[in-house]
Computed example of a mutant assay.
Amino acid sequence: MSERGCLIVVSGLPGSGKTLAAKTLETERPGVRFCPDEWMTTLGASLWDGELRARVESLQWTTALQILRAGGTAIIEWGTWGRDERERLRAEAHAVGARTELLYLDVPVDVLWARIEERAMEDPPMKRTDLVEIDDFVQGQRPDEAEHQAFDVVL
């Protein structure tokens, strides 16, 4: 384990490959991966329960900060579609002395939709219109050069 912790933020829309990328990073580093969908599924909760998701992510973040303070690697795969959310995670990790890395998975809507339909994980099922609305929101939230510069590494 390194002396300085490392936060890796894996960001992307549903179906972008966040979980696969995060699992790969988890074995390569090693690190602890935080995926709210997995925790919520294990609890038997709806993935659309926003209140529970917020509580799960808060608990995951508290644990991730403990890992970072101890010099470990924490891998966050929450989606983090908004620039403000990514910046908050980066700044708080930096405040505890951790390095920060960003992996942004930018995948076309048609590919995302095909993956979501194939995995059929969402209950109730996600609609293509939901995905298009999210993608429209994210258009102005994709990482730009200034955000890339704020992270220690962009993967």
Rank of each mutant, 00 (worst) to 15 (best):
L103W: 01
E28S: 14
D136N: 06
E92Q: 15
E3L: 15
Y104T: 00
S2V: 11
D144M: 05
L68A: 07
Y104A: 00
T27P: 04
P36W: 06
A150R: 15
A64I: 03
R4W: 04
E101T: 10
A70Y: 08
H94M: 11
T24W: 03
L102I: 08
R119G: 05
G5L: 01
E38H: 06
L65M: 09
G15K: 03
M126P: 08
T80I: 01
L89C: 12
P143V: 01
L68H: 05
V154L: 00
S2L: 13
W81F: 11
T73M: 05
L25F: 06
E51W: 05
K127T: 14
T19Q: 09
G15Y: 01
A70L: 08
A93R: 06
A146Y: 05
L65D: 02
L89W: 08
R119H: 07
A74W: 11
M126F: 11
P108I: 06
E122K: 05
R33H: 07
L13N: 04
G97D: 13
L7W: 00
L59P: 03
E147D: 02
E122W: 08
E147N: 06
G82Y: 11
K23L: 11
K18D: 01
S58L: 03
H148V: 08
R55Y: 03
E92H: 13
R115T: 12
K127G: 06
P108T: 11
E3C: 05
L65G: 02
E26I: 07
A95K: 11
G44M: 10
F137D: 14
A146L: 12
L47K: 15
G97P: 15
T129H: 02
C35D: 07
E147A: 04
A114D: 15
G15C: 05
L47Q: 15
R55F: 01
